[in-house]
């Protein structure tokens, strides 16, 4: 429960809109163009729609799914104008975004009575794991929670330093055993540190790894197991960080990381670029894993709780 719940919904919406601006103008203006001067949905429109969705990294399979459903609706309703079409599209995308995303969390809350709340952060190289951890830690600190960051990326050059700097910035505790130490041991001892020092949250950073590297994925399972050995029920959250610029490979990432660590939530980063982030729609549909956070900028508070409605609205609101 968040006792220090801050009210910055307005600001948040602005940031999200800003972050998604490129997406929004892209999709919306194209759809308007596609329907302009038409009173019905024809083959050409559907082709255009396919182009729009696919160009946003939604992926062929998901796009075909959306189009098929749209066609069925059109068959029933016969006449469709722009506004109706927009709302139908919104509906369909809403449906595909996992039901898990309707949990109504609109802030960075952690469950009561779970102390320390342990979060394991995983993902391929360069998606922004460490930055996301820094931003997330900042959010918890803002609520007055005691946070420790565990440096279990002991492999990539200077990774420990990078997390250490974020710990200072976000004013959290920091647990490290230095570079090239056993990451499972770091994870174990971070949880231990959190318990002994009465921390509310422990966030554990891991080295980026490509999901097809068997040994590295096994190492990740081992890290997770060692956390669990120290504290039953932990990690309470396994956060897979996905880069919004990533294309269809995000599906494979989600699948393989889930196999290794039972991913419980997704964070989608770099949404402030020109990338559309459409890949989350298909992923959410297929894996039923909620998208929990989105990264919309480089600043410390440019991490937001993913809000399905806001996300879809931002895509289509003019």
């Amino acid at each position: 429960m968040s006792f220090f719940k801050k009210f910055f919904s307005k600001k948040k919406k602005d940031d999200l809109d800003k972050g998604l601006e490129k997406t929004k103008t892209g999709i919306f203006s194209k759809i308007s163009k596609a329907v302009a001067g038409k009173s019905t949905v024809d083959e050409e429109f559907l082709d255009n729609l396919e182009e729009i969705l696919v160009a946003s990294d939604v992926g062929v399979d998901t796009t075909v799914k959306i189009i098929d459903r749209l066609e069925q609706r059109v068959k029933q309703d016969k006449y469709i104008n722009t506004a109706e079409l927009n709302s139908i599209l919104k509906d369909e995308i809403n449906l595909l975004l996992s039901e898990n995303n309707t949990q109504g969390l609109d802030d960075f809350t952690i469950p009561a009575f779970t102390k320390p709340y342990v979060i394991l952060v995983v993902g391929v190289n360069g998606v922004g794991k460490t930055t996301t951890i820094g931003k997330l830690a900042h959010q918890y600190r803002e609520q007055g929670l005691k946070v420790v960051l565990g440096a279990a990326d002991t492999f990539r050059a200077a990774a420990v330093d990078q997390l250490g700097i974020w710990a200072k910035r976000a004013d959290t505790d920091f647990f490290s055993k230095g570079m090239y130490t056993d990451p499972a041991a770091v994870a174990f001892e971070t949880v231990n540190y959190a318990i002994e020092n009465n921390m509310d949250v422990a966030i554990i950073d891991t080295a980026g790894r490509l999901h097809n590297k068997i040994n590295l994925m096994k190492e990740l399972s081992k890290i997770k197991n060692s956390i669990n050995k120290k504290m039953e029920g932990a990690p309470h959250e396994v956060l897979l960080v996905l880069d919004a610029t990533t294309g269809q490979n995000a599906f494979e990432q989600c699948e393989k990381f889930s196999e290794a660590t039972d991913v419980t939530a997704l964070a989608l980063t770099k949404l402030d670029g020109t990338a559309k982030g459409g890949v989350v729609i298909g992923i959410s549909d297929q894996f039923k894993i909620p998208i929990k956070y989105i990264g919309v900028g480089e600043g410390m508070d440019h991490l937001q709780v993913f809000n399905k409605k806001a996300f879809v609205d931002s895509l289509f609101d003019n």
């Binding site: 696919v54 160009a55 946003s56 990294d57 391929v124 360069g126 880069d243 610029t245 990533t246 294309g247 269809q248 490979n249 995000a250 670029g273 020109t274 990338a275 559309k276 890949v279």
Partner: peptide
Amino acid sequence: DSMTGQDAVN
């Protein structure tokens, strides 16, 4: 990044 999607062009 070879995993980049549609945005690679932009």
